[in-house]
Nucleic acid binder design. Structure first.
Lengths: 196, 196
DNA sequence: AGATAATGCATACGTCCCGTATGTCAATGG
DNA sequence: CCATTGACATACGGGACGTATGCATTATCT
């Protein structure tokens, strides 16, 4: 039963993040009792305060984990597309679809910004924005997109996407709304394409 | 000292909304103690629970008040513009600027959605979206905008605007970022204009 | 007009939850 | 082999929310 110390610690951290992520993603940050979800992980609040300082610290760790996963997924999507432009559109669509997943929506788009402020700021540009920026830069190099500041465009699209997702997810008829939203969104993207 | 009953009640409601609005807009919803801000208004939590049910109920009332004010302001802006298109652009710019005001940003774009869910949903389309939609419809009638679903476009712009505002407000250099953001935003709007 | 019902609002209480201060046990290192 | 550090649990205090209850003033009914 030789278990290196570091391994035990990492395991504890992982359990806390996983437990917090589940709680935050389902009942939400405010309603999640630290005693409850640490208990489910076989730990106590003591461990949480030791590793993350406070409840917000744990949320931050959870968000960084999710952000990394999203970045990875976005990169995969744009990588397999046949053309640059198609990859761009696919990436944006994927972003909307991810924002429909309850856990991502709740943690990344609702509770995260509310508790920690603008998430895209307190880190040196998080993965999602960076991924979009890369795609846009490639399109600019190819001359396929109108003249627009890269990061601004990335954030415009980011904002529009997440609002589309919220709209769809909270609609009483998500299917129908989704059709309208994606169609409109693609129309907007299309208008950004350089025409000649 | 004859004061009609209804008047006293309305005054109490008004005081509670004003006090809550100030507290929510400055320190934020979560940090605002009901005992504190009702006390500042010369009342107690009893009055609040009587009129609004709970803390969230008061937040909802505050939001409705602010939404009405924003709608009014947006209508004024688009009314004085020389052309339809200019009115539309001005309206969008005004929306970004409003989202820069700390109170609006905090209540309407951070705490509101986090506590109550998608605000633009639990009401039959709030004023801000409706105002944008009206402008867009006029542009469509004039054939000045690309073919796109009206409400979808309104929400796209709404989402993009609020993210621009968050970006600007939280930047360490708001002036510079503001320039980039507004320029990029106008570029996007321009691309929505029908070209010939 | 007097009695009664209803309503606006305050007070009192219980409970939950967070943050800190303190304690304990195991691991590491000299 | 002992001392120190660090990981984590337990104990405690405070604050905030929601509800139940009480009181006073106004509305209602005969």
């Amino acid at each position: 039963m030789r278990k290196p110390r570091q391994e035990m610690i990492a395991e504890t951290r992982g359990k806390l993040i996983a437990a917090g992520r589940r709680a935050f993603g389902t009942i939400g940050y405010a309603e999640a009792s630290m005693d409850d979800f640490t208990g489910e992980a076989g730990l106590t609040r003591g461990a949480l305060y030791h590793h993350f300082g406070d409840k917000r610290g744990l949320l931050q760790a959870v968000i960084m984990e999710i952000d990394a996963e999203m970045t990875e997924r976005l990169n995969e999507v744009s990588a397999v597309a046949p053309t640059r432009w198609q990859g761009f559109v696919d990436e944006c669509s994927a972003y909307i679809e991810m924002a429909l997943e309850p856990e991502i929506q709740r943690i990344m788009f609702r509770d995260g910004p509310a508790v920690l402020g603008d998430i895209s700021q307190w880190q040196n540009t998080p993965g999602c924005i960076a991924a979009l920026s890369r795609s846009i830069n490639r399109l600019k190099a190819d001359g396929e997109i109108i003249d627009i500041d890269t990061e601004t465009a990335a954030r415009l699209i980011n904002g529009a996407s997440s609002h589309m997702a919220l709209w769809i997810a909270n609609a009483e008829n998500p299917e129908a709304v989704s059709k309208r939203a994606v169609a409109g969104f693609k129309a907007m993207l299309g208008s950004l394409r350089r025409q000649e």
